[in-house]
Design a protein around this nucleic acid. Sequence first.
DNA 1: CTGACTGCAAACCCTTTGCAGACCG
DNA 2: CGGTCTGCAAAGGGTTTGCAGTCAG
Lengths: 167, 167
Amino acid sequence: MTDSPEILSRLARYQAAAKAAGVKLTHQRLEIFREVASSLEHPDAESVFRAVQIRLPTVSLDTVYRTLWLLHDLGLVATLGPRRGSVRFDANLEPHHHYVCTRCGLARDFTSAELDVMRIPDAVQTFGSIVTTHVEVRGVCGGCAAKSAAAGQPDLPPSGQEARRET
Amino acid sequence: MTDSPEILSRLARYQAAAKAAGVKLTHQRLEIFREVASSLEHPDAESVFRAVQIRLPTVSLDTVYRTLWLLHDLGLVATLGPRRGSVRFDANLEPHHHYVCTRCGLARDFTSAELDVMRIPDAVQTFGSIVTTHVEVRGVCGGCAAKSAAAGQPDLPPSGQEARRET
DNA sequence: CTGACTGCAAACCCTTTGCAGACCG
DNA sequence: CGGTCTGCAAAGGGTTTGCAGTCAG
């Protein structure tokens, strides 16, 4: 997962923007940029941290947070999820949609010309301005399904008061 | 924001399901049920807590959390957002879509027959099973727009390293 | 060289859990 | 009355911040 035209162009964009904004290109930032630019998943800070740690063992989680928000402030990545708690960062700024696993949180992009042009009811504009629109598909990913099959019972609505925690 | 046919029917459903599951209908639970059933927003635990506190000043935030997850475990509410951190609960189980304000987090439902039947690319199934599909529209709500107008500069990509935190 | 940046550690949420007393059924 | 449920308080996990030393430019 090192290079590809798209990833390289993202990386170049990050560096150019950082330079333009007058922020320093430290080793830590360069590695974090690379990691974010090359990730297909939408990693949270912890994931980026673990990945960067391999090449830069002394990097700290704080720096990863600071750098991710730096990219966000520069408009180079978008965020998924709610405003607080475990935010995930999305390096893909093109129109696209998301598949999310409700078990493990895996998130993948997909595109669809048909969905890109969907019409939003006029009534929505009474809520406020519309900036972005995307489809979110939820389900259980292949990996989790395999684990369920391996383990005991597989799925669905509980009735007692156990087994929660999987949004 | 007290009664309406739909809200009353939800409330009745919650009570019936709770009774069927053999859980006790305490004052706290009844108030929390009512609050969740009647909210148009998709409240997080804190919001439900504040609302319930008005009628039941001694209620604790823990109980709100426990009761919300109880409703979730009974299949009576869905959750929005990622699996950890500030989860929001959605009392509307019908197919619908969401408008979310990126400033304040306001979330509103909307429906659209057209969007309900959108076709998801086959490729998505390679990620895993598909359980739900909905559209998420993001923007800035009327209230926040008004505040911005009242204050100084209104919107968009920052360039320094300030002004973050608004996913 | 010098200001910006990093790592460390402590501070801060929000959420969950353990426990003893209170209440529903 | 008995088991469930609540409120309290403390623990837990993720994120942010203050500070002094370090490094890019």
